[in-house]
Write a protein that binds this DNA or RNA. Structure first.
Length: 132
RNA sequence: UAAGGCAGUCGGAUAGCUGCGCGGAGGAAUGGAAAAUCCUUUCGUGAGGAAAGUCCGAGCAUCAAAGGAACAAAACACCGGAUAACGUCCGGCUGGAGCAAUCCACGGGAAAGUGCCACAGAAAAUUACCGCCUGAUUUUUCAGGUAAGGUUGAAAAGGCGAGGUAAGAGCUCACCGUACUGGCCGUAAGGUCAGUGGCAUAGGUAAACCCUGUUUGAUGCAAGACCAAGUUAGGGAAUUACGAUUUAUCGUAUUUUACGGAGUGUUCCUAAUCCGUCCCAGAGGUAGGUCGCAACAAGCCGAAUGGAGACAUUCGGAUUAGAUGAAUAGCUAUCCCCUGUGUUUUCAGGGACAGAACUCGGCUUAUAGACUGCCUUAUUUU
RNA sequence: GGAGUGUUGGCAGAGUGGUAAUGCAGCGGAUUGCUAAUCCGUCAUCGUGAAUAGCGAUGCACAGGUUCGAGUCCUGUACACUCCG
């Protein structure tokens, strides 16, 4: 099993886009929404790469790089009961990996603040503790 | 050595750490147990020559049977061969390009018919404006002959030269082209030699309709098969027969054969199937899952034999991708190659085209760079 | 994965194989004291040129082919859009 749970339904992706919050960086776009079902405790992730960013092998590469970073950052940055959607951009497949990591880290922190406000900072830190 | 042509091979390599899909094996948990799910350890394995475009041909599956006939629609088209099949491949022919090796060509039929050929031009298909010649008339016309010369155009009734004539004309002749006939060579397309016809068989276009011949049923793994949560539930009205009675209600049974109807572009045939009192539910089947589908194939590699070759036959050998919001990644080091700076080292940047989705045979398109073999031409040396 | 449709000036949109229509926008001029409306002209690109004159060449997504001649017919490529669960 992979280190994180995946989003599989189109419905979930659309909900994250419409209801949820959105943060845009130069290398990647992050969307997030609170999970509906009470059963799912852990954070879930989905990846989108449109035809706009390139041909099939470029899209594959972008998706793999995003997945690699999420695997690295998810334990520290992602919150429980939340569904995240990452959308690839034109330079996702080619840019420096460190830049991608910085962008995503920033995006995670900003979106968590937007989603839960300042109050839930504690909750966030709790989850980090739990993850650790 | 330089330039070129053809055929073929490869498509960065190695190591380490952290991870992912699939398969095998072991362990732990849930569970009465099995199955199943999930966690974990370990071993194995994990993109291409085009995986691409979806342009052809097959397997496979469904449509009652892929069975027959006609029509419609579509594709193909020099000749011979190869192949499971093909619009593919091989060898030849014809025409064209090149000094040559070699390359290119949808390359049947225009004397079955129909259409179209703008503008220009007398005329774009059974043509005659100017002209030339003869005769009449007379000072510009008429009748006849002619298709040499002129203009237009992409294209104007074989070309060129000589004879001939009132002027001309294949009218006659030589050479070339072309058509027909015959001999020889070739399986054939065709080649070649000889003869004959003067060519009234009078132009082009079939990637215009069409004609001739050959081939093709349709739909594509989102085909299709199986399991199946949830949801819904049941019966109601009618025909006929019988029985009961409250004489218009209830109960039970029935709606068979014959006959009619039905269906893959259309019509028909063969034999089979289904439906037939009607409506609706049920029969089933949605979400989801399993199979199809993962090591076996008209496949690949090597050798021998046959063949001019495509290829065939025989023998031997190798083989583990299998996802389904979809696995092959991230980082580091060393080497290799390219570009820049440049004497070199160092340094910096970069690594073509591109990602399996049921499986094969082709075609087409994209592709940095490297290598191998053979052939042609030119130059130099021996 | 599969099945189809399309691409024409800045925008919309016609176009039997034979001179690339038309409308809107833009630009120039007329009209007006000024503007709007109206009317007239121009309006793809390049070269030549003093020139928004004239002339020539290239243009209908791109590249080949058939034809005397392709926006149109044939083949391939690119891009855009639609449908099938």
């Amino acid at each position: 099993m992979s280190a994180f749970l995946k989003l599989k339904k189109r419905k979930d992706f659309v909900r994250a886009a419409k209801i949820g919050e959105k943060v845009i960086t130069t290398s990647v776009i992050l969307q997030a929404a609170q999970s509906l079902s009470p059963n799912s405790i852990e954070a879930k992730f989905g990846f989108t790469t449109t035809k706009k960013i390139g041909k099939a092998h470029v899209r594959n590469r972008a998706r793999r790089r995003m997945r690699a970073i999420v695997r690295e950052l998810a334990p520290q940055e992602a919150l429980n009961h939340t569904e995240y959607v990452l959308i690839g951009r034109r330079n996702t497949a080619e840019c420096d990996f460190n830049l991608l990591r910085q962008d995503l880290k920033y995006a995670f922190r900003k979106i968590n603040r937007l989603l839960y406000g300042e109050k839930d900072e504690k909750f966030s830190s709790d989850s980090v503790d739990m993850a650790n």
